[in-house]
């Protein structure tokens, strides 16, 4: 038995959820805590909050989100977006986050991953990789997928594991937002290349897409945002479907 995880991702800007939702049951669709609670009640296994605030003032609001979520929601949650330093990590973990996700800063300064894993434990450090296909290779992109670091995505995933990352959040830029399914090819290669858990992200459009990524690759979890936010797929229904199709999953 190897139970797979379903992870809704919430994009948060200045303390508010940006991709709106159509859930009529939520009084305030922009409140990250209310939306998180909604997913928690539906059976989400974990949550990811991606802070896309640009200003310093905006960045501070994610701490309040972390504190409020930690008081109401008793499943693991990760906070990512703009984490640059050990101090950034420490305040988020102290605010109640179980894990932080490090992207650009890890590429620019791999020592940050190593120091953070040593100090806070590998279980608290997720390395997020935004990958894009170039010819026959996949390159790691940074700065919100705008800049090509020229690092090979597979090599970087292995390196991240070696540096002490506890998990890899793999986002396929070409798939992101297309709703045409997860990028199976690279996801499979990376999930085979490392022995730490890998989370597939980018491209989920249907229940079948989740089934495909769990059947064809060794990923531990699948993450999606808009299909959950817009109510196209309910987490409880998705889990039931996956269970019926032979994927070990926790239903609530």
């Amino acid at each position: 038995m190897w139970c797979k995880r379903i992870i809704p991702c919430l994009d948060v800007k200045n303390g508010r959820v940006v991709k709106g939702t159509k859930f009529v049951s939520l009084r305030d669709v922009g409140d990250p805590v209310a939306l998180a609670k909604f997913y928690y009640d539906q059976g989400a296994d974990e949550l990811v909050f991606l802070d896309i605030s640009a200003s310093i003032e905006g960045k501070k609001t994610i701490l309040d989100v972390a504190r409020s979520v930690a008081k109401e929601i008793f499943i693991p949650f990760t906070i990512g977006g703009g984490i640059r330093s050990m101090d950034d990590i420490e305040v988020l973990l102290k605010a109640g986050a179980d894990k932080v996700s490090i992207g650009t800063a890890g590429v620019e300064n791999p020592d940050l991953i190593k120091s953070a894993a040593t100090r806070f434990g590998s279980q608290a450090i997720v390395v997020s990789i935004d990958a894009k296909k170039q010819g026959n290779n996949w390159k790691v992109y940074t700065k919100s997928a705008s800049s090509n670091s020229n690092l090979d995505a597979i090599a970087w995933a292995k390196k991240a594991e070696e540096l002490g990352a506890g998990e890899i959040l793999l986002n396929l830029i070409d798939c992101d937002g297309t709703k045409k399914g997860f990028g199976i090819e690279l996801t499979k290669v990376i999930a085979d290349a490392v022995s730490i858990p890998v989370i597939a992200s980018g491209g989920a459009g249907s229940k079948e897409d989740f089934l495909e990524v769990f059947k064809k690759t060794k990923v531990s979890a699948a993450l999606a945002a808009s299909i959950f936010h817009y109510g196209e797929i309910r987490i409880s229904e998705l889990k039931k479907y996956l269970n019926e199709n032979g994927v070990d999953i926790r239903e609530v």
């Binding site: 139970c3 590998s122 279980q123 890998v198 531990s220 979890a221």
Partner: peptide, 29 residues
């Protein structure tokens, strides 16, 4: 994958800690 970072089934329950609970999924890391 190691660490085991997932929900997994807790079985063969035998302690007052599990009063009112049957086999259930819990979060492991």
């Amino acid at each position: 994958p190691v660490p085991q970072m997932c929900w997994n089934k807790v079985k063969s329950l035998n302690s007052p800690l599990f009063d009112g609970l049957d086999e259930f999924y819990a979060y492991f890391v």
